[in-house]
Deep mutational scan, measured.
Amino acid sequence: DLSGKLIIKAQLGEDIRRIPIHNEDITYDELVLMMQRVFRGKLLSNDEVTIKYKDEDGDLITIFDSSDLSFAIQCSRILKLTLFVNG
Rank of each mutant, 00 (worst) to 15 (best):
F71P: 02
S66K: 03
E56T: 15
S45K: 14
E14V: 09
D68V: 08
I63E: 01
I61E: 04
I73R: 05
K52C: 13
R77A: 09
L69E: 02
I8N: 00
G87M: 10
D55Y: 04
D25A: 07
D55K: 15
A72N: 01
Y28R: 04
D15H: 15
R37Q: 13
I16N: 07
C75F: 04
R40G: 12
L43E: 03
L2H: 08
D57E: 06
E14D: 09
E24W: 04
R40F: 13
L31T: 02
N23Q: 08
V85C: 12
G58D: 04
L60C: 06
R17G: 03
S66D: 04
L31W: 03
M35Q: 01
H22N: 11
F64C: 09
Q36Y: 10
I19T: 02
Y53C: 03
R18I: 13
L83T: 01
K42Q: 08
R17W: 02
N46S: 09
L31E: 03
I73V: 09
V38G: 05
L79Q: 06
L44M: 07
T27E: 04
N86P: 07
D25E: 07
L44T: 09
D25P: 06
R77V: 06
D68A: 06
L44Q: 10
H22E: 10
F71Y: 09
K80G: 11
D65G: 13
I73L: 10
K54C: 13
T50N: 03
I61V: 12
F64W: 10
S67I: 08
G58K: 04
L79K: 13
G13L: 03
L33C: 08
F39I: 00
V38A: 14
I78H: 13
D55G: 15
L12N: 01
D29H: 07
L81T: 02
L44G: 10
C75E: 12
V85R: 08
T62Q: 13
P20H: 14
Q74A: 08
Q36G: 07
Q74F: 03
V85Y: 03
I16H: 12
I51A: 02
K80M: 13
E56I: 09
F64M: 14
I7E: 09
L60T: 13
L2K: 13
L69D: 00
E14W: 06
I7V: 07
V85F: 03
P20D: 15
K54S: 12
K52Q: 10
